[in-house]
């Protein structure tokens, strides 16, 4: 497909990486972040391989959202190194653009553009960032709206859709840019209970297709069935990380046990 070739070509001239093994998509090394005086991320080390599906959980204020928002530079880290698909995140705007092309993001509150139709939401970045002709962009937009099973809503405005539908549009909007990594920041926590399933089903389908995913969520059912790794954060640190089965059946730390006992 032409789009994929285009993106592959773009990857070829990516900047000289710090040596990492072939399939490492995200490499965070002793990352620290402060909000003013508040030390929100403390010495985070995390390596994500291609196709991995990682669930990050933890109490609120533990820094889990901040962690994934650092990966596409919605938040800036002050110390340490983040390398995404061979490109290091620095102040260089070229690197940031390069990484944002690779990384799609889905937000808690969807953040759809309310003044644009569903299809326009999907096509906008293809047209203005990828410089694609409108017609081609709309074909891709429709393809992904079909994939999240709401092609019939294409001409509506986000405000006319239910929360679950809006979140699926947000997922389609990210997928249109053909990212190699998807970040989910509590994608279901703003939804009514009966809509959570439709969003999770979409995410499960995405996981089965081999997408590299980082997901901040409290949906432990999702973590059990989909994740290869579960990370528990508290106080800005990664307290524990393990395969889901071991994580849930045999947590190592007291803080993890306490957290699990509260949410299960």
């Amino acid at each position: 497909m032409t789009l994929e070739k285009k993106i592959m070509a773009e990857n070829d001239n990516s900047h000289a990486p710090i040596p990492v093994s072939e399939d490492v998509m995200i490499d965070m090394r002793s990352v620290h972040k402060w909000y003013d005086q508040f030390h929100v991320l403390k010495d985070i080390n995390l390596t994500v391989h291609k196709g991995e599906r990682i669930v990050i959980c933890g109490p609120s204020g533990s820094g889990k959202s901040t962690l994934i928002r650092c990966i596409n530079r919605l938040e800036e880290h002050q110390k340490g190194q983040i390398v995404v698909d061979g490109t290091e995140l620095t102040d260089d705007i070229k690197h940031i653009d390069q990484i944002r092309r690779e990384v799609g993001m889905v937000f808690q509150h969807f953040n759809l553009f309310p003044h644009l139709t569903v299809l326009e939401n999907c096509c906008l970045a293809l047209i203005w960032v990828r410089k694609m002709p409108r017609k081609e962009a709309e074909e891709i937009g429709m393809k992904f709206l079909e994939r999240v099973q709401i092609p019939e809503q294409a001409k509506k405005y986000p405000g006319q859709l239910s929360g679950g539908q809006q979140q699926r549009v947000a997922i389609a909007r990210s997928l249109c840019m053909n990212p190699s990594i998807m970040l989910f920041d509590e994608p279901t926590s703003a939804l009514d209970p009966e809509m959570i399933k439709e969003v999770l089903d979409t995410m499960i389908e995405l996981a089965e297709s081999g997408m590299t995913m980082l997901c901040v969520t409290h949906e432990m059912g999702f973590a059990k069935t989909v994740a290869n790794r579960v990370i528990f954060m508290d106080g800005g640190e990664i307290v524990e990380e393990n395969e889901p089965e071991a994580f849930f059946s045999n947590p190592q730390h007291d803080r993890t046990k306490l957290f699990l006992s509260q949410i299960m």
């Binding site: 596409n72 509150h109 203005w128 990210s174």
Partner: peptide, 26 residues
Amino acid sequence: PKGQYEAANALGLSYWKTMGLIVLPQ
């Protein structure tokens, strides 16, 4: 809302495109 800027940034829109296409129309 800040989320509009964040969504635009995450999609890779530049400052002027974010302003011109997302923020100013609203």
